[in-house]
């Protein structure tokens, strides 16, 4: 992991309040090229709110978000996607009634849309873009092991495959940084491992990732660095090993009873 040079994403002093509720307070972190950052915390800790504030679903109450040198605080999700910052959602991850291939086409809008009039008359430019994207989708589906499902309607896929398809849709937009909100919620252990391998392969192709989850085992086995959030505030940030030996984390997040389990997970983490 390289920490040298300007970070790809820099979040400084991010706060998000709803009335009296301080959902997120003064969060600061960075993500570098080719890095996987985990954000972890118990339910209601403000993980998803933090992501929403970064990805433009809400405008943050305070703070700055810089992506690739651009100040993008409060930018709408579609503008962030244009810059290369794409997120996934917990709930709606795929278009159920469409085929896997069509799902990917929808994800590739930025690379398919030639401008209003070119699209309308299906000009040479529009056709060339379409051809290029089709070819890429073929490769993407191959690469993620979805080729056999290309013409299957998404809702008929097993849940785990749907999650992979969700990542394929995000990848079709060709992001530089992908934010995954609970990518393994509701998956079996085997499927979880598959998703983890997929995320690692995504990173290997040069794309950074932010992964939000509350499953410490999953996060620690995947991420280069982990940010622990508790009550909307940063509790600790560092490598999985550092974070999990952090007394505050053990105390507040895992509870004292879990100290033994933590130690075990610590040993497991560097193995990956």
């Amino acid at each position: 992991m390289s920490t040298g040079g300007a970070p790809l994403l820099a979040v400084e002093g991010l706060s998000m309040t709803f009335g009296a509720l301080k959902a997120v307070q003064d969060l600061s972190f960075t993500v570098h090229d080719g890095e996987i950052l985990g954000i972890i915390g118990p339910n209601g800790a403000g993980k998803t709110t933090a992501v929403n504030a970064i990805s433009g679903t809400f405008k943050p109450t305070a703070g700055r978000v810089t992506f690739d040198g651009h100040l993008v605080t409060g930018f709408a999700p579609h503008r962030l996607a244009e810059l290369g910052l794409v997120r996934t959602y917990q709930a709606t991850t795929v278009y159920g009634t469409q085929t896997v291939r069509e799902n990917c086409r929808r994800g590739a809008f930025l690379h398919l849309y030639p401008g209003f009039f070119d699209a309308l008359i299906s000009s040479a430019k529009a056709r060339a873009m379409r051809a290029a994207v089709e070819k890429e989708i073929d490769r993407l589906l191959d690469w993620l092991g979805l080729a056999q499902f290309a013409d299957t309607e998404a809702r008929n896929l097993p849940y785990g495959v749907q999650k992979t398809l969700g990542m394929a849709i995000a990848m079709a937009a060709r992001p530089r940084l992908i934010m995954l909100d609970e990518p393994v919620a509701g998956l079996s252990a085997e499927e979880t491992d598959h998703v983890r391998d997929t995320i690692k392969r995504i990173r290997a192709s040069g794309i950074s990732a932010i992964v939000i989850d509350h499953n410490m085992r999953f996060i620690s086995g995947l991420c280069d660095r982990v940010l622990v959030i508790h009550h909307g505030q940063e509790l600790a940030i560092g490598t999985p090993a550092e974070v999990m030996s952090h007394p505050d984390v053990i105390e507040a997040y895992l509870g004292k009873g879990h100290a033994a389990a933590t130690a075990k997970a610590n040993h497991a983490a560097p193995g990956h």
Binding site: S55, T57, A76, P77, H78, R79, A81, E82, V86, R87, T88, Y89, T92, T93, V94, Y95, G96, T97, Q98, R105, R106, G107, A108, F109, L110, L112, Y113, P114, F116, A119, L120, S122, A126, R130, I169, A170, A172, A173
Partner: peptide, 24 residues
């Protein structure tokens, strides 16, 4: 056209479509 594809997509999944760079 591609606009139509984006329109059908945003009816079926507005958040997902916005994240694909579609100015919904």
């Amino acid at each position: 056209s591609e606009i139509g594809r984006a329109i059908d997509a945003m009816r079926e999944g507005p958040n997902l479509t916005e994240c694909a760079g579609v100015p919904v």
